[in-house]
Design a protein around this nucleic acid. Structure first.
Lengths: 169, 169
DNA sequence: GTGCAGAACTTGATGCGTCAACAACGCGCC
DNA sequence: GGCGCGTTGTTGACGCATCAAGTTCTGCAC
């Protein structure tokens, strides 16, 4: 379907009323929601939303341990960003790093007791915020719709990130 | 600590499967989508998503002019953030600032010719990106749903932004 | 067994966002 | 008619994200 990008670029089909309304409404989700969640997590738990995600994912693991690169995938972050954040969390004593011997440069990250306590303490507030700002104001059908939309967006982005090099010149 | 919140905090109703799925899917919209849009705008137009918004809003005005505070509301940004960004855009020659005489400290921002050219050049790519990553992969019913969801989120956040004063106890 | 490629991080420079002062101005008060 | 006072913007310090190197390993080629 994607012919030469130039063709499309020349005539971009503007948004009709329906589409424009959806796009504007979407910016509430894209912009206001993360800001609100971040501010609240910061206020209540001295954690960034992203920091919470990192600790939370670790706490779900059997041994509260995960390799950096796996953690990066799980939190959809770059290894670089993760490294910075993990470094900070380490100095705060919430987790530790350790090289896996005989495995290249692989590094494991493990939640400490203190880190675990922090996640446990922060979790209820996190859930409450997610409910308050998003889930609880949605009817069941919109809950379903949100799943579809999110899935579609993910596919569109990842599909476009590695575009169809196959078959088409 | 907020004492009244403790009651709620004690039993936070975790997310059921349906809700969890919606929340996970939502993170694609909240995290991946803005990142993708931003990266693409930057690549194609040397503009941040937010910078594009500023220029775009200005270009919609009759005289391509708007007061700082109005522009801030329109772009849901703090006056501080806007001031920084406008400062940068001004040094790039895309807009100009001018004090409104006899009106306190009010300042008008006006798009320059160069600025207008930049928006016009960037717009098609912007629309294409919005379509590609979001709009075009949604069925009509989900377009509708997205409107409802966005509206609900906005209400939830702004309603909660001025919360505990109006305790419904 | 040396050297080269690639994987898995780490680090440093740079830029943007936020938050807390600060500055400039009109207005109403007395 | 000078004095707070609220409005409107600006500025600087600081924290976090990103991008481009750099580092440290393993493994394979020859």
């Amino acid at each position: 379907m994607t012919s030469t990008a130039d063709e499309r670029r020349a005539e971009p089909r503007w948004l009709n009323q329906e589409e424009l309304a959806a796009w504007l409404a979407n910016s509430a989700i894209m912009i206001s929601l993360p800001a609100a969640l971040d501010a609240r997590m910061q206020r209540e738990s001295q954690l960034t939303f992203f920091e919470y995600m990192v600790l939370s994912v670790l706490s779900e693991q059997e041994d509260r341990t995960m390799q950096m690169s796996a953690l990066a995938v799980r939190t959809s972050a770059s290894l670089s960003r993760l490294s910075h954040v993990v470094g900070r969390l380490e100095t705060r004593g919430l987790l530790t790093r350790s090289r896996i011997p005989g495995a290249g440069r692989r590094t494991n990250t493990t939640l400490t007791e203190a880190g675990h306590d922090v996640v446990v303490a922060a979790a209820p507030g996190h859930v409450a915020a997610v409910r308050e700002y998003l889930i609880d104001s949605l009817e069941p059908r919109d809950l379903k719709a949100l799943q579809r939309i999110g899935t579609a967006v993910e596919a569109a982005i990842n599909g476009a990130a590695v575009p169809q090099a196959t078959t088409e010149q």
